[in-house]
């Protein structure tokens, strides 16, 4: 459990995840109020990562449920193992005839079988899926429901029971209650608007692209070999590119990819040639790349102008 908001920031930093105060506040509240967090924001800002970091920081097991179109209860909650049940009935044929032996009428036989049917609908034949696993787990878990916006709205409605009461109803077995209320993190890319009912049950967190200072910090942390000049230039360039009207804005992970690429190439500062060669690490559409090239060219020129001015000063000092 986190002791305070500062504790959240501190422990996240230990896990090499840099977060602002708003994120930390919401995480702190969610763990204390035992409410799910619904995280929205553009792709690649570290929504999924946040859940992993919460798990690591609290030293809990992470259970992940990846949502997709057509995901249903059987995949998310539990499923009966029909094959196993069938196999058992075959193997136990003799035993069953024994049970049925001596029954004088069909009616009686059915009654006898009915007495035994809870054998076949017991824990033994149930395959727990992520939701059930997280709820029945003896230890507290972090349940990550990833990309909830990709699932159907029926599934979303079904989630409501789990999220508000942390119970799961299996008709044959009854209602199962969570021993330990899991920390639930839902992420959404906003492919569709989530229902109000779901939002009502969650604390809401919107993660946007970080500001330059924070992004610089992230780059320095995640790309160890990078020079200070290059890191600053990369971040500044990406921040500029994000302001353009692009099909897909570069995310943090793409900034990191770019920074890593450049360090691999032993670059110490950006120049036009380098940008043109490596820009495909940041941008994924031809049109976007063209636009960004123009923007970055202008940026590098101003940089160079400033650079030569500084050099000029240096010379003066040498005299």
């Amino acid at each position: 459990m986190f002791a305070s908001i500062e504790d959240v920031i501190h422990r996240f930093a230990e896990q090499r995840y840099i977060c602002n105060r708003r994120i930390a506040t919401v995480v702190y509240l969610a763990t204390h109020l035992e409410k799910p967090i619904l995280i929205e924001g553009p792709a690649g800002v570290g929504k999924t990562e946040l859940a992993k970091v919460v798990a690591a920081a609290l030293d809990l097991k992470l259970i992940r449920l990846q949502c997709y179109e057509g995901l249903d209860e059987a995949k998310a909650l539990y499923e009966w193992e029909y094959a196993k049940q069938l196999l058992y009935t075959q193997i136990l044929k003799d035993k069953i005839s024994e049970v049925l032996g001596g029954a004088t009428s069909l009616h009686e036989a059915v009654d006898r079988i009915a007495k035994q049917d809870d054998v076949f609908f017991s824990d033994r034949f149930i395959v727990p899926r992520p939701l059930l696993r997280s709820i029945t787990s003896a230890q507290r878990t972090v349940l990550l429901i990833d990309e909830i916006d990709k699932s159907d709205s029926e599934f979303e409605a079904f989630l409501l029971e789990v999220l508000s009461d942390f119970t799961v109803s299996v008709p044959e077995l009854g209602t199962m209650r969570a021993n330990q209320i899991p920390v639930v993190v839902l992420t959404s890319n906003n492919a569709r608007e989530m229902s109000d009912a779901l939002k009502r049950r969650c604390l809401h967190l919107y993660i946007d692209f970080p500001g330059s200072e924070q992004e610089l910090e992230i780059v320095r942390l995640k790309v160890p070999g990078i020079t200070d000049t290059l890191a600053a230039q990369v971040v500044e360039a990406v921040q500029r590119v994000r302001k353009l009207d692009l099909k897909k804005s570069p995310s943090i992970s793409e900034t990191l990819d770019w920074a890593r690429t450049l360090t691999l190439l032993n670059a110490e500062r950006l120049d036009e040639q380098l940008v043109n060669d490596t820009l495909s690490a940041v941008l994924k559409y031809e049109g976007d790349i063209r636009k960004a090239q123009d923007e970055l060219k202008a940026y590098l020129q101003t940089q160079r102008a400033r650079g030569t001015a500084e050099q000029g000063d240096d010379k003066d000092l040498l005299h």
Binding site: I5, R22, T25, V26, L29, L33, E193, C202
Partner: peptide, 21 residues
């Protein structure tokens, strides 16, 4: 849970609880 001492976290707390869009 958080108290009202810190203005920023107060603001963030209210936002997380009440602003969903």
């Amino acid at each position: 849970e958080l108290g009202v001492g810190d203005r920023e976290s107060f603001k963030d707390a209210l936002r997380a609880a009440m602003v969903k869009r």
